[in-house]
Design a protein around this nucleic acid. Structure first.
Lengths: 255, 255
DNA sequence: CGCATATTTGATAGATTTCAATTTATGTGG
DNA sequence: CCACATAAATTGAAATCTATCAAATATGCG
């Protein structure tokens, strides 16, 4: 997206700045955050539930899920993090993990210490506000998921999720009509509160209806209007500025 | 709970301090926050979806729900606020409401301006952190709700919700075994992603099994162990300190 | 008393899960 | 590059849970 974006931090900074005004000094501070890079292979927890964490994790490439688990072993994904997302920025203020983080595919993360993040936030009101706001944005996605899982049928849930991922991918510079999505149908099931069998049948139907497609770990949206209407999708909750949102919708409709 | 707690702010302060260390100066600052009191009658929106808000709302008495709505008119409650909760503290950093707030029963709220809250948070790192942490705590409840709605059956969802409400009520000084719960079965249905008919039958069964009871807008827990096990309830996500949690659990088990 | 709201019950339809296989990808070592 | 092992996608049939529709009974309130 930007020529200088060699470090994975840059994409995160871009995202932060989409939501919050940061001063040049702020950006400078954040660019200088120390981190260590880590490769996580598919289906591996890199934060376990209950663990006392000391670092937050920024996704550079790949896909990360936050997992809850029921006593009977049923799994539920409560958040998906794509590149540019700091999966657990919240851990700076609540370090004890109340759910596990797992890579859904081979993933590169940057670990940034809570101490450094806290120092940055205490050194600048605008950074503090940006971090707070980012956590609130995550909460709004969660609220939307509650609604989706609570009140939409299988087709609606999957459509809604794919709409969300399209815009979130678009916001980080991917093509909103065709973007990487490494989750398996089982993982999609754990995200939407369905069974992998039912996800399979529903995706198959969406494909047959020429609405969306997942081929080779890539989502391809063929009919945005149909998808958005099936998912009853209203992008407000993502709080993207018109400058970001409008061109994305335009591209999606052009599809 | 405290003799001096004439103002509704006090209970909120107590709750904040349960999660975050505040200095005496911080507490002083927060006590001096200007507010206006407002009575809201049952089933009335006091914040509409899409509205640009200028104040955050603290519940003093009653019950408030955050409502999402689907195109087909299906409703989903994405948060319940009991006395002492600032329903939309998040609106300080994201003022545009992405869902409606509605009183589920006659409710008293305190409106506190964003400007005042922001000033408080910018004047003290510890206050800023406490606000941020409180929003994160709300998000963790939301994540648990996603899991509940996604992966538990009707009995599990209702049991889990009642367990949560028991501890949250206990934390503000109510008896965790018998506390006010003004929501109708229809509202419980909107909270758990069920139908009012199904909520009725399920509550009826929980009653028959001598697990819980809702009589005259009061929850009465008869068998905590059975309720917690039916709801597969693990209180970790509420992040209550042992000093608060342990006595509550003890009382609940004694029941 | 009488309207409006909430609870309760029954019968039926429908969506989704569960169980059990089968087929199709994907990756890996020889 | 093949053969094997493993993971993922796919399909079918039956069982279950939950929604839907419709109505009767309570309950609260002016």
């Amino acid at each position: 997206m930007h020529g200088y974006a060699t470090s994975g931090l840059e994409r995160w900074l871009d995202r932060l700045r989409m939501r919050s005004d940061l001063t040049d000094a702020d950006v400078d501070t954040l660019r200088k955050l120390p981190f260590e890079t880590r490769e996580v292979s598919s289906n591996r927890d890199f934060v376990r539930m209950g663990e006392q964490t000391t670092h937050a994790c920024l996704v550079v490439t790949g896909l990360v899920g936050r997992f809850g688990q029921t006593a009977s072993g049923q799994r539920q994904i409560t958040a998906l993090a794509i590149p540019g997302d700091m999966v657990d920025l919240h851990s700076v203020v609540v370090p004890k993990a109340s759910s596990a983080l797992q890579a859904l595919t081979a993933t590169t993360i940057l670990r940034v210490s809570h101490a450094a993040l806290q120092e940055a936030s205490e050194g600048s009101d605008t950074i503090a506000r940006a971090f707070w706001r980012d956590c609130v944005a995550d909460a709004m996605i969660l609220a939307e998921w509650v609604q989706s899982v609570g009140r939409r049928d299988a087709r609606g849930r999957l459509s809604h999720l794919l709409c969300e991922l399209a815009l979130r991918n678009g916001a980080i510079g991917n093509d909103p009509r065709a973007f990487p999505m490494a989750a398996t149908q089982l993982q999609l099931a754990d995200t939407t509160g369905l069974t992998s069998v039912h996800v399979n049948r529903t995706m198959r139907r969406l494909h047959a209806d020429k609405v969306v497609d997942v081929v080779e770990r890539q989502v391809r949206i063929h009919d945005w209007d149909a998808l958005a209407s099936a998912g009853d999708f209203n992008p407000n909750y993502l709080h993207l500025s018109p400058a970001v949102l409008d061109p994305l919708i335009e591209r999606l409709k052009a599809g």
